[in-house]
Design a protein around this nucleic acid. Structure first.
Lengths: 340, 340
DNA sequence: GCTTGGCACTCCCACGGACAGAGTGCCAGT
DNA sequence: ACTGGCACTCTGTCCGTGGGAGTGCCAAGC
């Protein structure tokens, strides 16, 4: 059975009212608050159908209706109109982001801004190394047998690692190493580097091969394996808005999930399409986040995407507003990155 | 009036029982659970005195007694015996901390470890730049008019900033800049650098003075002004243990406070004495943390202190255990840093 | 003078019934 | 196909009650 226009309209009204009041919505108050042009009884019939189709449900017999995950999904996909940002919000975004001095700063400001505007928990992924290229590799002698390896990516990320050398290496050799490493790797996408690093070792004169091998292993770790992704988080206090009613009684599972970087990355990390992605309740595929929704999108300079950002809140959230804000912030951040 | 030994013993018993059960403790159950050698009536008399002195209070007439902040304070200062760590805990600490590859890693592992062992919220401050010395300054040309300044501190911290130069600077000049900057600043405590940086500009030949001035201002920002302190946080989910009963009904103020780096630094940052510090309830001087206690201490290689770490939990916490754990973790981290 | 048992009193809290309110489902009528 | 009417159901709340825990005080005992 397909839903006619009025039924969809009823669903939209239910979602909107429930999001606003946080209370199950009944047929009578619905017709009072919206110009549906029909009587409560008619609405009740529509509701019965919507319930049968799984879009809404009753917390208990003879209570109002509440949207299900499927209901929110339908709402997001077909019923919600984009809600343009207010000028005040636009200004807030601009004011917040100008004056950022480095990548850390940009990310921190962004995540706070996002949390503040959406009044939800915000997550911003640092530009992914996998999507970055090597701009420069620096080797700084710390002692005769120790180097600090500093990798500067084109996205602004800087990673450093300590390299323990097998034996003392004179300064001139370090200069030579630096030159060779940069010639080979600078400008390359990080994901393309592993064979090149191997090549560096192979091409090395036997005398310095041990040193290079050592450096190479740290390079591989830094470039691909470890600490691949970083994130920033803000706005956890927003979880307490609306009492403990959202999140079925306890914040614990949500807070636990927020501490797991792996989980967060899964949530905001799927960057294939440059679309804004909305995951509602169970769609997150994470038990702890059954009653949470995530709105995320990719960001990056121009059309390329270097990382993800998004917000997490109760399934009962203002989707149109949140989606608009997330998109807008992502675009501003992208522009900001493009300037560097 | 001074409290005799038995009254103190009663206070200790009240604190211990209350911490364990989270319920107001009455005279009868007290004598049952502890070998006080007196009758409930006697204990009641003692309790009346303790209440008069402000160490305990009744949530309502004819309920049991609950320690006040002052009561906890007395308990911590005079009544609690150190609770040695279990071998399992020691092993956990060691296992957790070996294998850390860089400073970021050390800090992250530490904060998670601390949260796990104490089952509270853990905070670890990165080694303070103010207490670090410059190990090396690196200048990496990004383009002809842009340099990346990388500062490596002896504590392992690495900070980077982009420098926009007033005009193009050839590679040789960068080498020269790097040499001069390092000669002047390497080995210096960061807090001593500002006059030296000024000196660098003054000594500069007029031709390159503009460049140097530009670099100097970024140097100053990096070294002293900005992003001075960083922190890591873990275990917020532990706030939900014991229901919402701790923290008078809502986590919101606590979560809010935890988002403010400034506040956290105040809490764990007072590093003057190398003692472990305990702040109970109002002693925090922060309204949002009325019902929270903070146990913190400094850490660093050997006897020096480079940063603070600690945990935050309900005033109703296991002080002896927490203090022991915080101390032990700080010591292990210090040892770890000393190895580098 | 400290300690103790006894006792009356207070207050919380959990339980249970009654009740109003909101909302539904169904049915007959238009 | 929509509507008004009606009976029904369920919740949340209010209130009164009783049990229980704990206290404060007092008079007696060591």
């Amino acid at each position: 059975m397909s839903l006619d226009d009025r039924k969809l309209e009823v669903l939209r009204a239910i979602v909107e009212d429930y999001v606003e009041t946080q209370e199950p919505v009944g047929s009578k108050s619905l017709v009072e608050r919206h110009q549906l042009g029909v009587s409560p009884a008619t609405v009740r019939n529509d509701m019965a159908v919507l319930e049968e189709e799984g879009y809404i449900r009753q917390p208990h017999t003879s209570a109002g209706r509440v949207p299900t995950d499927a209901g929110y999904r339908l709402f997001v996909d077909r019923l919600s109109k984009v809600k343009p940002l207010t000028p005040a919000e636009r200004r807030a975004i601009e004011r917040f982001l100008i004056g950022a001095v480095d990548l850390d700063d940009v990310v921190h400001r962004t995540v706070r801004l996002l949390a503040q505007l959406t009044r939800q928990v915000a997550v911003v992924q640092y530009p992914s190394l996998a999507r970055s290229s090597v701009r420069h590799l620096e080797l700084v002698p710390i002692s005769t047998t120790r180097l600090m390896l500093v990798m500067i990516a084109d996205t602004g990320r800087v990673e450093q690692r300590l390299v323990e050398l097998p034996g003392p290496v004179p300064a001139d050799d370090v200069t030579d190493l630096r030159r060779r490493v940069n010639e080979k790797l600078a400008g390359q996408r990080l994901s393309d580097t592993p064979p090149l690093v191997q090549g560096l070792v192979d091409e090395c004169a036997p005398g310095s091969r041990a040193t290079m091998a050592c450096l190479a292993s740290v390079l591989l770790e830094t470039l691909v394996e470890r600490s691949e992704e970083r994130l920033a988080l803000a706005g956890t206090a927003n979880l307490t808005r609306g009492g403990v009613l959202d999140f079925q009684g306890t914040l614990r599972p949500v807070l636990e999930a927020l501490e797991e970087e792996v989980i967060l990355l899964k949530l905001i990390g799927d960057l294939e399409p440059s679309m804004t992605r909305v995951r509602i309740g169970d769609e997150n595929k994470i038990d702890n986040l059954r009653s949470a929704s995530v709105v995320s999108t990719g960001y990056g300079p121009g059309a390329t995407i270097v990382g993800g950002l998004g917000v997490l809140g109760p399934t009962r959230m203002d989707y149109p507003g949140t989606i608009a804000t997330v998109r807008a912030v992502a675009r501003y951040v992208g522009d900001l990155l493009a300037q560097n």
